[in-house]
Amino acid sequence: MAVGDVFVHREEPQEAFQHVDRAFRSADVAFANLEGVYSKTLERAPSAGVPVIADPVHASGIAASGINVASLANNHSLDGGTLAMLETRSLMQANGVATAGAGEDSAAARAPAVIDTDRGRVAILAYASVFPCGYEARPGAPGLAPVRAHTLYSPWETNEWNPGLMPRVTTVPDEGDMTDLREDIARAREQADLVIASFHWGDFTRPFVLTDHETRTARAAVDAGADAVLGHHHHLLRGIEFYGGKPIFYGLGHFAFDLPGLEERLQKSAYLGRGDARLRRESARRFGEYKIGARDGYPLLPFHADGRLTGFAVLSYGDGVLRAGFAPCVLGPDNSPRPVAASTPEGKEVVDYLERACAFEGLPTRFERDAFAIEGVAVTAVTPGS
């Protein structure tokens, strides 16, 4: 099972996953992207935006959830400095949560988390494409595993001048990072029955859209030998496709991602449009209704209402075949994900949203609603379309 961004920072941390923990504990592997730092050894990274940091006591919410693998490759994993990241990693591991995507040097950051199960060995690799400068690991320095790309801007029409028009955006992969990715997957392939690649990537300012970096990198990972790809960072669900018969979950959104007092923290940092009048106007043009900010009735979740639609991916392996599903969930005012069957109005809204995301990007994927259940949680089967 796999979810997107998680960070527990609330008065009762062990209640964060109360509606899904039985299902997670039933899985051989339950994966999440840990979007923040649990540490008392803090030194704010100079390039950090708004740090996502909490006292280690809140990590009990992760440890009690049934999650047993966490990615540390994201744009908040070094907000408190390298020592805080390493302390977070040690804390997770001490609580039975394997980690991938960050470490004491580049080799450690690129190493997979390996889980032995009754049905074989699973290796999970984790990378970030979205992160502040300086968060990347180097041969002699701690950090995260990067998969970067250079961004190019060009006009939509090449036969006319049109100053100020929004450009066409394309990307060129960092060849060194892509070589590392292929080598990492090949090494993991030698030691595991299943290889899963996780990426923190994408444009969180708009719904549905996928960048060329996401589709290119996901397919390159499959070509290199990955059995499935998991994406996160968008805070809104993204489409799902099958490439070479392998499932790619482009964006699992956030799952239980607590951001108490975020508006005040944004104001202090003059971040994401919290600055002078010019910055506010530019932010309004950039984000529109998807601007991150306080939402009435949702004190821990300052995202657009679409961000309350979530769920978890389900991957099952047998007879040499990997099958995919998705369990719809919704986030209420308590910010604890609650499973909903696709046959209910709430569950229908989640699966309808996934279908819209697939249609927007032309991903031919079928959804068989409420195909089966796990620990009482209804799962929609996800299969290739024509």
Rank of each mutant, 00 (worst) to 15 (best):
V3E: 01
D5A: 03
E12Q: 13
A16K: 11
F17P: 07
D21P: 00
A23Y: 13
R25F: 06
S26C: 03
D28H: 07
D28W: 04
L42F: 13
V50M: 02
I53L: 14
V57P: 00
H58T: 07
I67N: 00
N68P: 08
A70K: 01
A73S: 10
S77N: 10
L78P: 08
D79K: 06
T82Q: 15
A84W: 07
S90E: 15
M92E: 04
G96K: 03
V97G: 06
A98L: 15
T99Y: 10
G101I: 02
E104N: 12
D105M: 06
S106L: 15
A109S: 15
A113G: 13
R121I: 13
V122D: 01
I124F: 04
L125D: 00
Y127H: 11
Y127R: 08
A128D: 09
E136C: 05
G140M: 05
R148K: 12
A149W: 04
H150K: 02
S154T: 13
S154M: 12
S154P: 05
W156S: 08
E157F: 10
E157D: 12
W161E: 15
L165H: 14
R168E: 14
T171L: 07
P173Q: 07
D174Q: 08
E175M: 10
R182W: 00
R182A: 11
E183G: 04
D184Q: 12
V195A: 02
A197S: 08
A197I: 01
F199Q: 09
F199S: 11
P207T: 09
A220G: 02
A220W: 01
A226Q: 02
H233S: 14
L237P: 10
R238I: 00
G239E: 03
G239N: 03
E241L: 06
E241Y: 12
E241V: 05
F242L: 11
G244I: 03
F249N: 01
G251E: 02
G251F: 05
H254E: 04
D258R: 04
D258W: 05
P260L: 12
G261D: 04
G261I: 04
G261R: 08
L262N: 02
A277H: 07
R280M: 09
S283H: 11
A284R: 06
R295S: 09
Y298N: 11
L301G: 01
L301P: 00
F303L: 14
G311E: 05
L315G: 01
L315K: 03
R323Y: 01
P328K: 09
G332D: 12
S343T: 08
E346D: 14
G347C: 01
G347W: 03
V351H: 09
C358I: 06
E368G: 14
R369K: 10
A371S: 14
A371G: 10
A373D: 09
G376F: 08
G376K: 11
G376W: 08
V377C: 08
V379T: 08
G385Q: 11
